[in-house]
Design a protein around this nucleic acid. Structure first.
Length: 330
DNA sequence: ATGGTTTTTACTGCGTC
DNA sequence: GACGCGGTAAAAACCAT
């Protein structure tokens, strides 16, 4: 299952290598090779798509935003793009003192009852402060991880922010004990990506997360349960743009695949099936219909499913597409 | 824990380039 | 011969109970 090569960095799929000139070109509105219309940058999907025909012109938009974690001595305010506001008061680095529990003054003399009450209050606040601080460090580390992974997976900013909100909720509801920060951070990001309709499969997190797939998968389930995130099952169609542009296929194929999927949705073929596999099969089926030669193998490669799965699914999709002719949504 | 479903792995034969 | 494709059986993974 875990394939040895890093699938993240090796996205070529037939397109020309653009290794050296990545930073040189900046904000030029790419023109669509098909219809000439200009592309529109779709931040939430991390892609640039053509307004006319929907071709993905560019999809590896890199998040060049600053890392949340900035260790500069001069802590800037703008660095907290996400997460807790930095007040500069919180991070005691574990060195702060604790208010003693003994009701004595510095000379060992007992305190008056009024003083005692006052000290009690101070202790309470000291505790709260301490807890707050530990929490903040936790959050900080998690957000750093989320940012790193989001960037590696080409997930846009808003997903990152959603992830941090989710993580913060998990933290507030004490879901962390017994689970690693890493696992929860990964789970939060996974959830956020799905919520934003730019899903990445669980497997895709394996190379970028620092914990085992099993671990963050479990963290996700737990979190989903406890926080009642109400995440709908991933829509297979939401994988299409990414896969299609990675395969550099004709936009026709992509649209065809989308139609097949919505037809299949009506026929209720989809439930219980792996959405990634369905998307892959839809692309293959669409390739057949459009007479564009796409092998099961190359699709299986980019989608990270087996060819068997594609074989298993695509006849069903063709079936549904035939009996349930084109969606009226054109 | 258990059983049912889906996916994967590994192996097969067949046809084509 | 390599490759694409389809079929299969057994193992693994997943999910609800």
């Amino acid at each position: 299952m875990a394939r040895p090569e890093n699938t993240l960095t090796t996205r070529e799929a037939g397109r020309t290598e653009t290794e050296t000139d990545e930073e040189t070109e900046e904000t030029d509105p790419l023109a669509c090779p098909e219809c000439g219309a200009e592309g529109v940058r779709d931040e939430s999907h991390g892609e640039t798509v053509c307004t006319e025909c929907g071709v993905v012109l560019e999809d590896d938009l890199v998040d060049r935003g600053p890392e949340w974690r900035a260790f500069d001595a001069s802590e800037r305010d703008e660095k907290s793009r996400v997460g807790a506001p930095t007040t500069g008061m919180l991070h005691d680095k574990g060195l702060s003192s604790v208010i003693d529990w003994k009701d004595q003054d510095a000379h060992g003399a007992a305190l008056s009852s009024k003083k005692r009450q006052e000290m009690q209050r101070l202790r309470t606040w000291d505790e709260r402060f301490r807890a707050q601080s530990a929490r903040d460090r936790n959050l900080k580390q998690a957000l750093g991880e989320i940012s790193r992974m989001a960037s590696a997976l080409n997930l846009p900013d808003n997903v990152q922010e959603t992830a941090s909100v989710i993580y913060r909720r998990a933290l507030e509801e004490d879901l962390l004990p017994g689970r690693s920060i890493e696992a929860m951070a990964t789970a939060a990001l996974y959830a956020a990506a799905r919520k934003a309709n730019v899903p990445r499969s669980l497997d895709e997190f394996a190379p970028v997360s620092r914990v085992e797939r099993k671990e963050y998968a479990r963290a996700y389930r737990y979190m989903n349960e406890e926080l009642e995130l109400a995440i709908k099952p991933a829509d297979p169609a939401s994988y299409l743009p990414r896969f299609c542009s990675e395969l550099a296929v004709d936009p026709d194929v992509r649209n065809r695949a989308r139609e097949l999927l919505s037809a299949a949705e009506r026929s209720a073929i989809l439930s219980g099936k792996n959405p990634v596999g369905l998307a892959a099969a839809a692309i293959y089926a669409a390739g057949l219909l459009c007479e564009e030669k796409l092998t099961q193998n190359e699709i299986a490669e980019v989608a990270d499913v087996s060819t068997v799965t594609i074989r298993e699914r695509y006849p069903e999709l063709l079936d549904a597409g035939a009996t349930n002719p084109a969606a009226a949504a054109d």
